[in-house]
């Protein structure tokens, strides 16, 4: 009995059903996400892939509660999410942002940045926790009292990851965590994220436009275009090169590098779809 309970709980850590996000009102409204739904099991890494403006980051932000004006149903660890999130949600779900230069407060030291969540949730033992968090992301104690401008991009992203982990969440939302970093640092940060997931049994949702990063980190992924999921598949399928939807094929071709003939053959799916809508 308890076994099946635990199993159903582990089956879907995150459930998203028919999610719509609209920005603005009236005639100027933008329908950024149109009926997106997916499930992520506990301990799984799920990738959201798509080009800029496809709505993948918006899905993540809606899940985190940073976007207003969403409709649909989202549950995290069995609890349905309302328009406002309570403190328990923030202890369960944390996020790492894309731009490490914009995600750390410019006037706060690393210590202040890391002690803030401890103070908000009254966890106590801030000293030990900060030391631990810095150690976990591979930064020594000498970084503790530095300001963000005294850190490199990779070091900043490590601080951002430490900040997300200091509340010991079960779910980490990763919004293109490596796209602002140069290639050698990207691998370091990805390996760090993979190690933390192994050690702590975290659940990841990784948003990226980089198919290689998603293939490296995730087991399943969804391809988004124009606010909808066009295809959901496993990474094994992606590796075999067997995507069904033409948009995914095109994305795969694009990710292999610049090829004149391939690029000339590209279709703008936004226009193509608008055309098909107009016809129907």
């Amino acid at each position: 009995m308890t076994g099946t309970m635990a199993e159903t709980a582990s089956k879907a850590m995150i459930e998203v059903d028919d999610l719509h996000v609209t920005f603005g009102r009236g005639p100027r409204a933008t329908h950024a996400v149109r009926g997106v739904g997916f499930r992520v099991a506990a301990g799984e890494s799920y990738g959201l892939v798509g080009e800029s403006g496809s709505g993948k980051s918006t899905v993540l932000r809606a899940l985190a509660g940073l976007v207003e004006g969403w409709r649909g149903r989202m549950t995290v660890a069995g609890r349905v999410l309302g328009p406002r999130r309570e403190a328990a949600f923030y202890k369960l779900v944390q996020m790492v942002f894309q731009d490490p230069y914009g995600s750390l407060h410019p006037r706060h030291t690393v210590e202040r940045i890391l002690s803030e969540p401890v103070a908000i949730h009254r966890l106590g033992a801030a000293d030990r926790r900060i030391e631990q968090a810095l150690g976990d992301v591979g930064l020594g104690p000498q970084f503790r009292y530095r300001y963000p401008h005294q850190l490199s991009g990779g070091q900043r992203q490590r601080v951002a990851i430490a900040r997300a982990l200091i509340l010991e969440p079960k779910i980490l939302l990763l919004d293109e965590p490596t796209s602002a970093l140069d290639v050698s640092i990207q691998a370091e940060v990805l390996n760090l994220l993979a190690r933390l997931k192994r050690e702590r049994g975290l659940t990841y949702i990784l948003v990226s436009h980089n198919l290689a990063v998603v293939a490296h980190m995730c087991t399943r992924l969804a391809v988004m275009n124009r606010g909808t999921i066009v295809e959901e598949m496993t990474v094994a399928q992606l590796r075999r090169g067997a995507p069904r939807h033409p948009y995914t094929k095109q994305l795969l071709t694009a990710s292999r590098g610049y090829d004149r003939t391939a690029v000339d053959a590209f279709i703008d799916f936004a226009e193509a779809e608008a055309g098909s809508i107009a016809r129907t």
């Binding site: 410019p106 006037r107 908000i120 949730h121």
Partner: peptide, 26 residues
């Protein structure tokens, strides 16, 4: 709407804490 304000919002900080500790210093 900077990410560092979003980040502290995501940690469950109250509006008072965000305004006093994060916005006023800037």
């Amino acid at each position: 709407n900077a990410d560092y304000i979003n980040a502290v919002r995501l940690q469950g900080a109250s509006s008072l804490r965000i305004i006093w500790g994060h916005i006023v210093p800037l």
